[in-house]
Simulated assay, not measured.
Amino acid sequence: MMSLTGKYAVGILLTFTILAAAMLYAFPAVTRITGIKGITEVNFFLSRITLWIILILVFLYTIFIEKSAFLLKEETKYSAAFYVKAVLSLYFICLIGGGILNAVILFFIEEKISNKLLNLVPIFRNNYFLVIFTCLTAAIVEELLMRGYVQSRLEKIYNNPTVAIVISSVLFGILHSTYGTISQVLGPFFIGIVFAIFYKRYSNIKILIICHFMIDFIAMMMMNFIDMKHLSVF
């Protein structure tokens, strides 16, 4: 009989593995199934559905295998004013910190903008439904899985919050490596650290979901009005 700690470890491994597989192969798989060639709105939308399926699978794993709550940390309630202050603070920390980090990277490495991002820009142009759906998917799925599920279980396994914060943030950065640039790994790693520290301190996943959505939504909306070469900081 596997111990609860063992189940946590298996759950973390499975979550990361299937998320990484989705990042790498979901779009090609959808393209093969639909028969629609190239990067289209339909194919991208369906590829995001796979992330929701992963979330459901992990949720079922917690119920039937772990036999525990999905969120091990009980959600702490805060006032509306705290939500506003927390979301804005997190947003600007990530924006300013990410911008400085990106500037440092560009100072040492002549890095081009991710080809994957450039190829995605046309399908998001003035497609507000796809923008909102994509941002909601990333915010809800990634926060529930990486902070809500992975981080809390790492903390139980190692009995060390710092280890949980670092490992979950490293995994979060690696998942974004499919964009093919160093910035797209170190940027999410930095955001992962900020979010993980906040989650440990304040135990509120909803604030992180709102902020994650805000970060992605503002960046993607700006793609409608500003040339992509000026958006590297995002």
Rank of each mutant, 00 (worst) to 15 (best):
I54V: 11
A86V: 01
M220V: 12
F217N: 07
V104H: 09
V87H: 02
L14F: 15
E75W: 06
L95G: 06
H212F: 09
I205Q: 00
M223T: 10
D216C: 08
I96E: 03
L175P: 03
Y128K: 07
A9H: 03
Q151S: 08
E74Y: 04
A164T: 08
C135A: 11
K116H: 12
A21C: 15
F82D: 12
G98P: 05
F124E: 06
Y149D: 01
L95Q: 14
F189M: 11
L101K: 05
I215Y: 12
A69F: 14
T137E: 00
I65H: 07
G11C: 07
L95H: 09
I191D: 10
V150P: 05
L175W: 09
L145T: 01
I123P: 01
L14D: 06
I18F: 12
V10F: 08
L136T: 10
I109R: 09
L57V: 10
F234R: 07
L208P: 07
C211M: 12
I182F: 14
Y202P: 02
I39C: 06
Y202S: 05
S68Q: 12
L154F: 05
V166R: 00
Y8D: 11
Y8S: 03
I49Q: 00
E74T: 14
L60Y: 08
T17M: 14
Y91V: 11
I100P: 04
T31N: 07
S177A: 15
N115F: 11
I36T: 12
I36G: 07
F190R: 07
I215C: 09
F172I: 05
F190S: 08
T50R: 03
E110S: 15
V10Q: 10
P161K: 07
V84N: 00
I53P: 01
G148Y: 08
S203Y: 13
A20K: 12
E66L: 12
F195L: 11
T134Q: 04
P122C: 10
I140N: 06
Y149R: 01
P122Y: 05
K73W: 12
E111S: 09
Y78L: 03
Q184D: 12
T181L: 05
V141Y: 04
N43T: 02
I165W: 03
L57M: 10
M2Q: 14
Y91K: 02
F124K: 07
L106R: 15
V30S: 10
F124L: 04
S168N: 09
D216I: 04
S183I: 11
T31D: 07
A22M: 14
I96F: 13
A138T: 12
E143T: 13
F44Y: 15
L55S: 00
I209G: 08
I140W: 05
K200I: 09
N159Q: 15
T76S: 11
A69H: 15
L4A: 10
Y61R: 03
F70Q: 08
M146R: 06
Y83L: 02
I182A: 13
A20P: 13
A21N: 12
N102C: 11
L19R: 03
E155N: 13
V131M: 09
R201A: 13
E155L: 04
M222A: 14
K112D: 08
I226S: 02
V87P: 03
G6P: 02
I123M: 02
L88Q: 04
I113K: 06
R201E: 14
V10W: 13
I210G: 00
S47Q: 08
L72Q: 14
P122S: 06
Y199G: 01
W52R: 04
I226Q: 01
V233H: 11
T76H: 14
N224V: 00
L175M: 15
V58A: 05
Y83C: 00
